[in-house]
Design a protein around this nucleic acid. Structure first.
Lengths: 347, 347
DNA sequence: TCCATATGTGGTTACGTTGTCACACACCAC
DNA sequence: GTGGTGTGTGACAACGTAACCACATATGGA
């Protein structure tokens, strides 16, 4: 063991290429080549340098490398709400794929706030990230990034006005499947709980709901459609009002949060699933399979969406010229016990 | 509108301080002072530079700044499993606090694998992160970081052999509360499902289980203690074996994953909660309050743990000399319907 | 013998930022 | 006048790395 190891437990300065070059009796240039594997280095010198780097505990300075190479291996990711399992799983899928490709993920939760989102974009720009994956709340962030030559992938919804890659699920189809499942069971008054946004995801789910009705030639009662903003304090009272005043025989809750609120409201009112009301959710989360009866739900491949988004970004890094792709994944309707034909009493 | 804006939609090179200095007719030094707010700059020059920066879309290069200042505003975070809601919420708490303090979070999921964890530590070192928050699986990563002068905060468990800050919950107390709750109800054969690790978290929960028995002067049957590794493929069969062979009247599952598996096993066997078996979990997750009956659980302030960890790191950044702190948060036993006295038939 | 090619090496420069320093000027008090 | 102080500026160096180039030396074929 080298006595220096014990003598310098906390090096005041980090070890640099120049240090290990000096230790191995070469120049910094050679050290750089030896450790990065680019360019000619004799086997003997490479070995000496590797040994010196190991002994001195050399760790390359990524800031210097990024500055010099004008390219980093960091990807910025901005999601709406890391506390929501949907976004957490999205992030997990992204992180997994990036890690396998030896990239790092900088993760920010922007609360779907366009100001925060723009601030994120600026931060990612300042970091010179190799790309950005975003669940957009506004088109401005993507525009800023694109204007500065940063690749962007939109996940879960499309908002960008500039051409960029995207990964979404087929919201129309998912919502239509949910709706027609209920209509086929004989429901005529299907309530819709949907997020109050101008996002393509929610617009698509609304459209699927309407399409389903058109397909079954059931007229839509506008009063059955309840748009509710994220984290709105009156969420449950508005759901309660829908239940009490419109008497839907079934409810389609177009995201996992609204499904949870709806479930709570129904339970608190003592309404039984599916006898008194049928319930369908969108985005399968664990509790839906565990409660009794289980919740019929449009399941989306969330982790896979994250993976695909990361893959799109990596693909574009490899081939910047490839045309923008929009991948649409297919949702699956999982029928559980929360849906059944309306009971005679309801009519 | 400046015609240059339209003429250069995609600048090939990023705008630098030198560019805006030139545009404003000053030196780069003055530009730096004007925008960073350090040092003397005339109000007039500052205004001109600000305007130029705005007009040209200047975004500072963080790599250059980090290189020069030898300090970044990035914090590395390594958790065991981002797919598990516990770690996701931990990360959410950390991210929130860091964002408010204008730091960025680099998040990695290391699968509790010491090799991956060490690789993370190296990557964070290379990025010259201002600090690292980690749910440790091994002491090596913290040692490496500390040796290089990087501040480390351990969350959820303690493993480091070097002095460093930490945030944990009182696992002994949580587990003791869960255990004595069951013993007080009259249970004499309480099964323990615990993660098979050498982590302080699981060791503490085991200890709390033993302490609870000691307190009630109930002898512990070793066969009731089942250590199960994360993601072990035979998890449910081992739980099944416990149920079938040892006939516990109650089960304490010492983390949310094991609680879920136990619940599934009991349901599949048609055993009713709490009539046939009582069940207590550790770490409250949504389904536990939603299933019928609800699961009695030792709840931990997960998001708050993340926040505290970030705060400890920020505190140390402000005052590197402050003594290492170990914050111990208190868990809360939430009694729901899954626990009741053993039924006469069970004896 | 001599030029081509392959193999190695080190010097220099540049990436974009910020800190240090020297310097210039204005103003005021002595 | 002189010496201070406050204000303002730009030249220059440095952070650590990697690309580029110039320059060695060895090997081979013409």
């Amino acid at each position: 063991m080298n006595p220096l190891d014990a003598a310098a437990p906390v090096p005041a300065r980090h070890v640099t290429l120049a240090d290990i070059a000096r230790a191995a009796g070469t120049s910094a240039s050679t050290a750089s080549r030896a450790l990065s594997g680019r360019g000619y280095v004799s086997e003997e010198a490479r070995e000496r340098l590797r040994e010196a780097a190991e002994r001195l505990g050399y760790v390359p300075n990524l800031s210097a490398r990024t500055l010099k190479q004008r390219a980093s291996r960091v990807i910025g990711v901005a999601v709406s709400d890391l506390g929501n399992q949907f976004y957490a799983r999205l992030a997990a899928g992204i992180e997994q794929t990036l890690r396998e490709a030896d990239y790092q993920m900088v993760l920010v939760s922007d609360n779907s706030d366009r100001t925060q989102e723009l601030a994120c974009a600026k931060a990612f720009l300042a970091m010179r990230t190799a790309g950005v994956i975003i669940t957009p709340a506004d088109s401005e962030a993507a525009a800023l990034l694109a204007r500065n030559g940063v690749d962007v992938v939109e996940v879960d919804r499309r908002l960008a006005e500039v051409p960029c890659d995207g990964v979404v699920i087929d919201n129309e189809r998912g919502a239509r499947d949910a709706t027609t499942h209920l209509l086929a069971l004989g429901h005529l008054r299907v309530g819709l709980l949907v997020a109050d946004t101008d996002w393509t995801s929610d617009a698509g789910r609304l459209q699927g709901y309407l399409d389903g009705h058109a397909q079954f030639e059931v007229e839509v009662d506008e009063r059955l459609i309840v748009p509710i903003a994220f984290h709105a304090p009156d969420t449950e009272s508005r759901i309660g009002a829908l239940v009490d005043e419109q008497r839907p025989t079934a409810i389609f809750a177009a995201n996992n949060t609204l499904a949870e609120h709806a479930w709570q409201v129904l339970r608190r009112r003592g309404l039984r699933l599916p006898h008194d009301v049928s319930l369908v959710g969108f985005d399968d989360v664990p509790w839906m399979a565990m409660v009794e009866p289980g919740i019929t739900v449009v399941s989306q491949p969330t982790v896979e969406m994250g993976r695909r988004a990361a893959q799109l970004l990596l693909r574009r890094a490899a081939d910047p010229a490839c045309p923008p792709a929009l991948e649409t994944l297919e949702p699956t309707l999982i029928v559980r016990g929360s849906t059944a034909p309306p009971s005679p009493l309801q009519h």
